[in-house]
Write a protein that binds this DNA or RNA. Structure first.
Lengths: 106, 106
DNA sequence: TGACCATAGATTGATCATTTACATATGATG
DNA sequence: CATCATATGTAAATGATCAATCTATGGTCA
């Protein structure tokens, strides 16, 4: 799982969100570092839907614009949790190595 | 930076290593989870050399086989350190979110 | 009032890293 | 005599992301 995918899933943990809402939420939770491109977002949502990690929720009409909401499935939450644990383990291992060899750089 | 790349750089933090040595080291430091494929390794080494994160060290002849050693440059170490810090920050943010919303799953 | 920005959706072609598969070669193990 | 561990690499395919573009509404500012 790549980074944008991880962040997209994370943005849906607290409930369904529509595309633009995911873009904004990812910006917030990444500390302003990641601004998803729409090309990344919508193709990822299609892919994740096909994989069963995400599914359609409902649609809204706001000011003449459609809002399409997506939600995380149980499988999506499980995948996100597993991936995060794997990532933490990896990060910890790399940091341990850096500390051991180059104590001042970490 | 993708995961295999991160691990390849990490495997060279304690000194120069040759290709196959990197494969073995990555297996160890990933807790046996990642076995680099040679296609990934050698194309990554070429790319990282072109980017200046890695450079050629020396060559050895062992049992009629060549061993080509690579080492991390100062820029490579800096990039690895920065990437690891970024990854930790990201992982922490995602975990915080998971804990806040689904306390039992983390 | 006309330009621009934020919001909201989406598609297309290009790029890049990785994977898969292939190719070659030696020495040790069973 | 086959297979595995060691050791190097290349070429084609896949997959995810990026860059660019498009449509459309409502609000702000000069």
């Amino acid at each position: 799982m790549r980074e944008p995918t991880l962040l997209i899933l994370t943005a849906m943990t607290d409930g369904p969100r529509h595309g633009y809402g995911i873009v904004q939420e990812v910006r917030v939770l990444s500390g302003g570092q990641v601004s998803l491109l729409t090309g990344t977002l919508y193709t990822a949502l299609d892919r994740l839907t096909a994989e069963g990690l995400v599914e359609h929720d409902h649609e809204e009409q706001v000011d003449g614009r459609v809002r399409r909401y997506y939600r995380l499935t149980a499988g999506g939450l499980a995948a996100l949790t597993a991936e995060t644990a794997r990532l933490r383990q990896l990060t910890t291992a790399v940091e341990a190595r850096l500390r051991a060899v180059h104590p001042r750089t970490v």
